[in-house]
């Protein structure tokens, strides 16, 4: 309904809305809620285990509870990081080509980080 109020000129200028803005907003808020619990849970455990040594950390990451916490943390964190940095890129990078390049690099980097950490954790859990 709301789009009916816009003039045809407004619609074609800058291609109008992509209708994906709210998705990103909700995604950022949903992952923020998850991280509200996961950040303290992961970070406190991580620091305590790292203080006890590498073997203790590996044992924790490979345990059912540790693996689940770490997998959930890196999943939610990578998702949240990707949306957050995408907003910063969209704010500051003016050139269209460079902007898309940065957004792609951001996505690829974050997904690679998520895949690598998840693989490590699963490796510890099942083969460690």
């Amino acid at each position: 309904m709301a789009s009916e109020y816009r003039t045809p000129l407004k619609r074609i200028r800058h291609f109008g809305s992509a209708h994906h803005g709210v998705e990103h907003f909700i995604a950022q808020k949903a992952s923020a809620l998850a991280l509200l619990v996961l950040v303290p849970l992961f970070l406190v455990s991580f620091v305590l285990k790292a203080e006890a040594g590498a073997d203790a950390l590996r044992a924790w990451l490979g345990s059912p509870a540790g693996a689940l916490i770490a997998l959930a943390f890196f999943g939610a964190a990578c998702f949240h990081m990707r949306v957050g940095v995408a907003v910063i890129v969209e704010d500051y990078v003016e050139s269209k080509a460079l902007r898309y390049l940065c957004l792609l690099a951001n996505s690829f980097f974050v997904i690679a980080l998520w895949a690598a950490t998840s693989f490590s954790i699963l490796y510890l859990a099942f083969r460690g």
Binding site: L57, L61, A77, C78, L113, A116, S120, I121
Partner: peptide, 25 residues
């Protein structure tokens, strides 16, 4: 942005610690 770097460093270190490249804290 700081958290992005922090999670990245922790992630890379966990990978190094579990799949080789680093042995200890």
């Amino acid at each position: 942005v700081g958290n992005f770097l922090g999670v990245t460093l922790i992630g890379i270190w966990i990978v190094a610690l579990t799949l080789g490249g680093a042995q200890a804290v």
